[in-house]
Design a protein around this nucleic acid. Structure first.
Length: 279
DNA sequence: AAGCGTTCCAACCGCAGTCGC
DNA sequence: TGCGACTGCGGTTGGAACGCT
């Protein structure tokens, strides 16, 4: 674990504003940055501004490139399909904007975050749905949800609470068949068959797959098996695809669209009667 | 047309993870 | 092992654009 930064200076040279320009980028700056990256490639952001002749910090250059100048960045309105996908992915991943953006071609994490904050969260609230938990707002004060709501709604940036936030954001939408009190960085072991016997095959497999991911960053943790690591991105991609394409999501999102919310969330508690078959 | 409040989004900030020395 | 540099992420902010009166 990284040493807390509070014990030393927080101002890195990159953040020092001495002599560096801030604010909106000019077309000239955009052109300089684009030309440089086209020639030299991405990366080495720290030294890039000096080499390119820009009076910007590396962070600013990276952000401008990633969110605006990259050729793959799609401009324009979010389509209904994209909106639906964002809803599904947010329900699955929480405020993991970069992960969500990674599933939506051409969209950046910043764009999706902004769209969520300005459109989708308000839309869900207007429908009586807590945009953090995707549960009905009416239940947010119930004792069973307090431990989740309190942590999820905390804006405190302390490292421990942030990890707790992340864990709850992830664990809440997805059923995990056992309590995880382990350190968050540890991988989850699926060897708890007694707790998952009631799951149907699909959900068993989904949770088994989830259990092999590091819950903190959703990268697969395969117990130091490098041969498995080489394909884990593909596995995770397939896993996400299988989840976001499931009919259970379709039916739920249809109800969300209609301003309703299902009584029961099969992903949170799949042992209830209305589990749905996967395709 | 002017003033004011609201919305939206590009950009900034601080923190955390990773890596190399 | 510890430290610093670098990078990336998510939350927040500032101000331009927009809408209403």
């Amino acid at each position: 674990m990284r040493t807390p930064t509070s014990s030393k200076t927080k101002v890195t040279p990159c953040c020092s504003k001495v002599g560096l320009k801030r604010g909106p980028w000019t077309p000239e700056e955009d052109e300089i940055l684009t030309n440089y990256i086209n020639k030299e490639g991405e990366g080495r952001w720290r030294t890039l501004p000096k080499k390119a002749g820009l009076l910007r910090c590396g962070k600013s250059c990276r952000l401008r490139w990633m969110n605006y100048l990259r050729p793959s960045v799609k401009r324009g309105h979010i389509s209904p399909d994209e909106e639906d996908l964002i809803l599904r992915l947010h329900r699955l991943l929480g405020n993991r904007w970069s992960l969500i953006a990674g599933r939506i071609p051409g969209r950046t994490d910043n764009e999706i975050k902004n769209y969520w904050n300005t459109h989708l969260s308000k839309k869900l609230i207007s429908q009586g749905i807590d945009p953090r938990t995707h549960k009905p707002l009416i239940n947010r004060n119930s004792s069973s949800d307090d431990h989740i709501t309190n942590k999820a709604s905390s804006s405190s940036p302390s490292s421990s609470s942030k990890l707790a936030n992340d864990f709850n954001t992830i664990s809440n939408p997805i059923y995990i068949p056992f309590q995880m009190e382990e350190p968050l960085r540890s991988s989850i072991n699926i060897n708890h068959p007694g707790e998952i016997t009631s799951l149907d095959d699909y959900q068993y497999q989904s949770n088994a797959m989830l259990a092999n991911y590091n819950i903190d960053d959703l990268n697969i943790v395969v117990e130091e098996d490098d041969e498995m690591n080489c394909c884990r991105d593909d596995v995770f991609s397939s896993f996400l695809n299988s989840l976001i394409n499931e009919d259970m999501f379709n039916s739920q999102n249809q109800q969300i669209t209609n301003g309703m919310f299902p009584d029961f969330d099969p992903l949170v508690n799949p042992t209830q009667d209305n589990q749905q078959e996967s395709g």
